[in-house]
Amino acid sequence: MQWWLRFMCRGDDIALRIKGITYGYTSIPVLENINLDVKKGEVIGLLGPNGSGKSTLLRIVAGLIRPWFGSIEFGKRPVIGYMPQVESIDWDFPITVEEVVALGLWNRSGMMPWPSKYVRERVNMVLEDLGMSSNAKRQIRELSGGEQKRVFLARAIVHEPELLLLDEPTTGADPSTRDDILKILNKLNRDGATIILSTHDIVGVAMNLPRVVCINKRILADGDAKDILRGDNLLKVYGLIDSMM
């Protein structure tokens, strides 16, 4: 386990504590002194423009990037489900929908190269829940944008994670797919999953979340969506007025 991910969190209701995270890809930080407590069973939306550090923060929590400063503390290391931005996927890769989803259970499938009965059943169940069972045998490049989102969401949830990190799960999806995804996330949350997702969609996604964190290098607002998604906060987040004002 990476040193910046620690088991030091106090209090049973805390899923993870982000403490003083600073990180940049060059000498200029994209995240600066980020502090955030995430309670168990919470759903948090990270809202901010491109380059605001949303994906970077998710990748640090996932253990993919070592921050310059700060740490992530977990009450207990959770089972993580991760959905990257679909733009990072090689769509010409010869792989079917069910094979992609089965990757999420790679360590529960035995030593043989083919999936076990448990994996096949679980994959079928999740694909059915997401309305994708008829696409199970299709190549991923044959899917529409919305279907692609569902496949990667299916992979993120197939192993029943306690903490879901979703990088723009609804970007590029049509309103119907977006609403379906939100319904699925709602159900997972009711079953106990803690969810952190990044989004650009203020009206379609952020307004429907119980807690939104506006981020643009620093945390600019944090709270109930209806309270913080006001014009002045959004102007600050999207850089239209000086965030230091």
Binding site: R59, A62, G63, L64, I80, Y82, M83, P84, S88, I89, D90, F93, I95, E99, V100, L103, G104, W106, N107, S109, P113, R155, H159, L165
Partner: peptide, 17 residues
């Protein structure tokens, strides 16, 4: 096979998993 397939297809997520 499964590990190699995972990291060949999506190296970053494979690490998370």
């Amino acid at each position: 096979n499964k590990m190699i397939l995972f990291m060949t297809f999506d190296r970053e997520t494979a690490r998370v998993y």
